[in-house]
Amino acid sequence: MYRSASLIKQREFRTLLFLILLFVVVGFINSDYLSWQNIDKSLKSSLLFIVLAVGMTFVLLTGNLDISVGGTLGISAAVCGTILRDGGNIFLAVIAALLIGACIGLINGFGVIKLKISSFIMTLAILSITRVVQVIYTDGKWVENIPAHVKELSNLDIFGINLLSFIVIVGVIFVQLYLSKSSKGRYYTAIGDNADGAISLGIPVKRYIAYSFVISGVCASLAGLIFVSQIGFVSTNAGAGIELTVIASCVLGGVSLIGGIGTVVGAALGAIILTSINSALVYMKVPAFWNDTISGSLLIMIVVIDALLAFNASKKAKKVRLNARVLQKEA
C-alpha cells in the first residue's frame, strides 16, 4: 500500500499519466491513433530523442547543460554515413562514430572542468564548431546512397516489436537501475544536489562531471547511428535545433535543470510525449504549423505547475516540521 502511494507521488508517474491521457484523448477523436501500428511508429520516431534524452539526463543531473548534442549527432552521423557509403565495415563505422562522440564529450568536459567555462557557453561554442567541422568534412554535401541493409536494421522486428525500440527500452531500464541502485550511479545525483557536499564525501566530482559529458557525447553519436539507419541520408543540418527539443523533453519528464532531480525514465517519457504530440496533431487533423505553439505552451504550463506543486509541498513540509516542534515543547 505504502509502495503504491509513493509511486503515485512520483513525478514520472504523472508524466506517464499525461502520456496515457494524451493517447486516450486523441484516440477518442480518431480511433486509428490507438492502433498498435501507430504506437509502434510513435515509439520508433521518438527513439532518437529518447537516446539523446538519456545522455542529457546524466549531464543535467550533475547540474550542467549540454547544448552540443545536435552537433555531435550530425558529425557522427556524417562520418558513419560516409564509411558505410564507401563500403566500409559496419563495426568500423559504429566504433568511429562512438569515438567521435566520446572525444567531443571529453572536450566539453575539459572546458567545463579545467578551463572553468560555464557548461552552457562551452557546449554552445562546441555546437557551432562541430557544425562547421561537419560541413568541412562532407564538403557541404549530403551523405546519400547509404546501403539498404543498414536501413533495414531499423525495420527489423522481434516479438512484434521493433528491434531498435526493444534495445532502447531495455537500455533505458538498465541505465535507470544503474543510476538509482548502484552507488557509483548515485554519484551523479549527489553532485548535482550538492557539489560541495559531494566533494566532502570523497566523490571525485570533476571526474564524474567529465564522465557525464562523455556519456552524453556517446549517446548523441548513438542517436546519430539511429538517424543514419532510420532516415537513410545525412543532410548538412542534420539534428539542427534538436538540442532544445531534448532539453525540453527532459524538463517535461521532471529532470531539473539545477541538477540533482530527475530520472532517465522520466526523460524518455518526456521525449515520447513531445514526439507523440506531432503525430497526434496529424491524427486530429490540426495543421502542422500548430506544433511549436502547442509544445511550447505545454512545456511552460507543465513546468509552472511543477514549480507550484513543489512550492506547496515545501510549505506543507515546513508546517509539519514546525508543528512537530511545537508539540515537542508542549510535551
Binding site: 547543460l65 552552457f120 532544445l244 532539453i247 525540453a248 524538463v251 531539473s256 535543470l257 539545477i258 504549423f289 500548430w290 506544433n291 511549436d292 505553439t293 502547442i294 509544445s295 511550447g296 505552451s297 512545456l299 511552460i300 513546468v303 509552472v304 514549480a307 507550484l308 512550492f311
Partner: peptide, 23 residues
C-alpha cells in the same frame, strides 16, 4: 514570481513565440 528556471521558461517561450508566428 513562478520561481522557475529562466532557461526553461525562455526555452518554452522560444518554442511558443516562434510557434505563434508560424500559426
Amino acid at each position: 514570481y513562478g520561481k522557475v528556471q529562466a532557461m526553461v521558461i525562455t526555452l518554452g517561450g522560444m518554442l511558443l513565440y516562434s510557434g505563434i508566428a508560424i500559426v
